[in-house]
Design a protein around this nucleic acid. Structure first.
Length: 201
DNA sequence: CCCGTGATTTAT
DNA sequence: TAAATCACGGGG
């Protein structure tokens, strides 16, 4: 069993957490089996001032409640009538910042992922997008608020030995937030250069 | 390019 | 109550 980062890992600013999540393993434990993938793409959402964040202007609703909680928990939301997206909550309670998990490099349970993602033609289609990875790993609103540090169903591991050399980290503007004015172009998306599992180059 | 899809949010 | 929105994915 790989060690998990402690609570203090998550209780930091969203950009730091977004960058340091790259190369860690997201694990979904389901029916006694592990589905997992290496985190290769993230986006930071900076809270009340961030025009692209669900908590902009201090918005606090039933949907985004877990974003207001302590770091190290999941914020899972439903959108476009059919998709779930999974965030890692950063900072401390009452500091509504988070990191959207955008892409994984599939690792364990790839065969199960293929069954959950029948539309994926290649393995680079399995988890190369925020709603693709939730479908592949069976993450839905039932996991909203789950504890990534201590929970049994969804968590993050940081193996002692590095699995592979990941290479350079690239920063770019976030995807799908064109409405956010000046915040749309800030370099808050992070991914490994030249990784084929990233949602788009 | 366009559209499906329906919960969530905001405006009356 | 009603209307608009949407941190997307898949197909042309």
């Amino acid at each position: 069993m790989n060690p998990r980062p402690p609570r203090s890992f998550y209780r930091r600013d969203a950009v730091t957490v977004a960058r340091e999540l790259l190369g860690l393993l997201l694990v979904r434990q389901l029916q006694g089996k592990r589905l997992s993938g290496w985190i290769v793409e993230t986006e930071a959402y900076l809270g009340v001032e961030d025009l692209a964040a669900h908590t902009v202007g201090g918005r606090r609703t039933a949907r985004n409640a877990s974003m207001w909680g302590d770091g190290g928990h999941a914020y899972v939301y439903f959108t476009y009538g059919m998709h779930y997206c999974c965030n890692v909550v950063a900072g401390r309670a009452e500091q509504p910042i988070a990191v959207l998990l955008r892409s994984l490099q599939p690792w364990e349970g790839v065969q199960d992922m293929r069954i959950r993602r029948l539309r994926a033609r290649r393995d680079t289609d399995l988890c190369s997008g925020p709603a693709k990875l939730t479908q592949a790993l069976a993450i839905d609103r039932g996991l909203d608020g789950t504890d990534l540090v201590d929970g049994p169903d969804l968590f993050i591991e940081r193996p002692r030995a590095i699995a592979r050399p990941w290479g350079r980290i690239v920063a770019s503007s976030r995807i799908g937030v064109q409405y956010a004015g000046a915040w749309a172009s800030k370099p808050l998306r992070f991914h490994f250069a030249d990784n084929p599992h990233v949602s788009r180059p």
